[in-house]
Design a protein around this nucleic acid. Structure first.
Lengths: 205, 205
DNA sequence: AGAAATATCCTCTAAAAGCATGATTTTTCA
DNA sequence: TGAAAAATCATGCTTTTAGAGGATATTTCT
């Protein structure tokens, strides 16, 4: 019995690459592919799948959200995050949402096969070569942000000043400022530049 | 006579994808692949290549720089930029550096073949479906930054204040401030938050 | 119902950033 | 070698941020 795999990625090249990489491996069957979350969910409703490879950046909803949905609706499907070296920081979120591991897209064939084996056996898989040709940052986890903090962060990123944000959100400037201070605290930075850089790196804005 | 192609990308998946996509096309031969700029240059020194597909984000130097180098050392090699939807803004730089066009990685097989045909015929190729499932921003071009401005931008992104940057660069605070103002002007923004967000989106930091 | 988390508001101070205007020196390159 | 571009510095002013300290509603969840 082959391991049935669903690949979800919006880049045909990645789909093709993974498919061709897995095609000639015995015991592995690429059951289908999807280029967005809707397609992925639809496919899972009508097909049996063992492992789903989820790209983290999808056109409709993020792979993180998709992972959550899949785990809710199809708990038996194991998920593997597919991330580029830029998106590693997402990975912890994925794991929190039930993913069985992640692969960076620069993984070689052996790593991919190893990941499938591990996950199919009920284990976890993570690329270990963390800080090679990529961000030297210790890949921080995303701080937990409240609804309001996210809103404020977004508006800051859009270039609004505190007074403008206050107007937008119908609150006082001091409130906005408090949220701002909390953001700086949670991200452990001391100014807007660092805040936005980090948030951008984490894909939050 | 087949069109000889070199693919330069640090993601094995993309390499595989392109290779398998082009493998069964007559008149096209994937002469080789490289996962970084050094390998690419080395390959070109010893092999004949018609078209080089260049990923924009490479581990050593950017595809943009690589494009320039290739054009200098191997003027007969035509280059095609490979970009993800996030990196479109780089494209104009590529073109300025002599690229014959660009492909977004979400291109389908037909588009890729069409691109090869066009470029081989001495023409240019650009994906036209610009603003579909991607950034709603009008995909700005990267403003031309001077050496010093890039340095300052980087230090700002690292969270340094003007006085700290001045100390780092052994110049006065007013100088740093001037560079900062110029950055804001060139990016057409009015504060650090927007600046960093834009710069991060363009992959500059 | 009650604790905990979240959101809201306040004052005050100092530091930093943003904006305008102008000028000199150094590099770069045609 | 000259013109253009880049880098340097200055002054003065306004707005915004950063930081500290505290306070009161409002949700949320057990």
């Amino acid at each position: 019995m082959s391991v049935k795999i669903l690949i979800v990625d919006d880049h045909p090249l990645v789909l093709e690459g993974l498919k061709s990489l897995l095609a000639d491996c015995e015991g592995i069957l690429v059951a289908g592919t999807a280029s967005n979350a809707i397609e992925a969910i639809a496919f899972l409703k009508t097909n049996e799948v063992d492992i789903a490879f989820l790209d983290i950046s999808l056109p409709d909803i993020s792979g993180i959200e998709l992972c959550k949905k899949i785990k809710e609706q199809f708990p038996s499907v194991k998920t593997l995050a597919l991330s580029t070296f830029n998106e590693r920081s997402y990975v912890s979120r994925m794991i929190q949402n039930g993913a069985s591991g992640y692969l960076i897209k620069s993984s070689g064939k052996e790593e991919i096969l190893e990941a499938i084996r591990q996950v199919q056996a009920g284990g976890y898989f993570m690329n270990v070569n963390f800080d090679q040709a990529s961000s030297p940052a210790p890949s921080k986890t995303i701080p937990f942000l409240t609804r309001r903090e996210k809103e404020v962060l977004l508006l800051i990123a859009e270039g609004l000043t505190n007074p403008q944000i206050a107007e937008q959100l119908f609150v006082s400037v001091t409130t906005v400022n408090t949220h701002r201070q909390n953001l700086l605290m949670k991200f452990e930075v001391s100014n807007t530049a660092s805040l936005i850089k980090l948030a951008a790196g984490l894909g939050l804005i």
